[in-house]
Design a protein around this nucleic acid. Sequence first.
DNA 1: CCACCATCCATTGTGTACAATCGCGGTGTT
DNA 2: AACACCGCGATTGTACACAATGGATGGTGG
Lengths: 254, 254
Amino acid sequence: MNEQLQPLKKQPRAGKAGRSGTQDDIVYAHIFEAILEQRLAPGTKLSEEALGEIFGVSRTIIRRALSRLAHEGVVLLRPNRGAVVASPSVEEARQVFLARRLVERAITELAVQHATAEQIAELRQMVNDERDSFSRGDRGAGIRLSGEFHLKLAEAAKNAPLISFQRSLVSQTSLIIAQYESGNRSHCSYDEHTQLIDAIEARNGELAVDLMMHHMDHIDSKLNLDEESASDDLHAVFSHLLQTKKPGRSSAKI
Amino acid sequence: MNEQLQPLKKQPRAGKAGRSGTQDDIVYAHIFEAILEQRLAPGTKLSEEALGEIFGVSRTIIRRALSRLAHEGVVLLRPNRGAVVASPSVEEARQVFLARRLVERAITELAVQHATAEQIAELRQMVNDERDSFSRGDRGAGIRLSGEFHLKLAEAAKNAPLISFQRSLVSQTSLIIAQYESGNRSHCSYDEHTQLIDAIEARNGELAVDLMMHHMDHIDSKLNLDEESASDDLHAVFSHLLQTKKPGRSSAKI
DNA sequence: CCACCATCCATTGTGTACAATCGCGGTGTT
DNA sequence: AACACCGCGATTGTACACAATGGATGGTGG
């Protein structure tokens, strides 16, 4: 029925994100990407067997990948009831944003101190890719690249614990955006990213932090987190109870 | 041969730390605790089969537990070569402490805002336990409880991402202390913890943060991180290469 | 005598079979 | 007709068997 991907079996290394190449990395990266690009909606059930068939690997691998995703907070692992794409509550979203503000501030300061010319060039490249994606209309890739920009920035900060924490926060943020966006505007406006890089390259820590904080403001000002939760927010409110919500998003279907 | 623990099999819930009771949680908690109490030295190899025999479970469970520990940075998972207790380099230690300063500051501020009377009481209880452990001479339990104090504080901050990050940082800190301590003094002096609680209870954020920052200063002033690495620090310097280092620490054995 | 190479062994990586658990639908009773 | 109980199906949890990898060791050639 649902054999959507060719089994990919022992694809030597052709995958996109899995650099280490071990199978569970590949699976992890694909699911991760799918969630970040909103091809998997919050609440979607992630059956081990189905995923195993899709990727052509056994449940063992799938299980590890899901476990990792659960650690990062993008997947919810309910004992004996399977895994679902996480659907963060408003409160959880607030907590993530609070933590992110904190981390982004520190990362920015550190990046100003430690970023190499090469890393700055890579950052610029990512902003270009991001802009391209949005102008191409590929909103999903845009969101993902926008997140990856912040991750790259974390790498420039040269602090391993912060990088891994940032990874978790960025993924959850993408999920939150997917769930709560007002829908009217594009997300991380990439000129903000560009300005940020400029400030970092100029080693202007104070300006960079200011820009980053404003950037954070812009991000969550685009969300519906505050108070108002009527009509279709009902889904969000009770989404942690749902389990069979299908990818199709518009609630007015049939 | 080395059946040290009774298989514990389906022990209903009698364990100490594993509240959720699923077997891998129990195993995870035990190894975690052993590392934090320095019953497992950095660099010790963690054989899946041996652990499985000890805990009376299959390698599947052990593997999951190790995976979790690796995510938190206290275990190093080398592909095809097994797991070892992490032995953080000086640079890694610095990164952990930097991140911790950051997080502890935020946690302190948040705890001042959100800590309930009940939580404050629990914190006081933990300090008591900690003092008892040290005065009883149980240094391992003291270190662990000291770490758990900081974790409890994170819970009072009511921010899930910060809690999980703090968990990772605290465990790594314990490992670092185990590896680099000067050995002369007790670790988290518990009166600092008491003063901190007082400030939090008084809702004096500024004072609380100051105390916490000084507390952090004291912690890493007790370590040998800075420059000096002679004689027995040789172990630490090359520990990331070692793999068969047995728990017994004094190198003058047989 | 030393260095290089092939083989062996120990340990991990993966797949699969079986057992346990939960949700769901049927059936009987009140 | 509505509620409660029971059995069934599906999915996850666990263990085990086999495959693959890497290190160690012994042998051989220079």
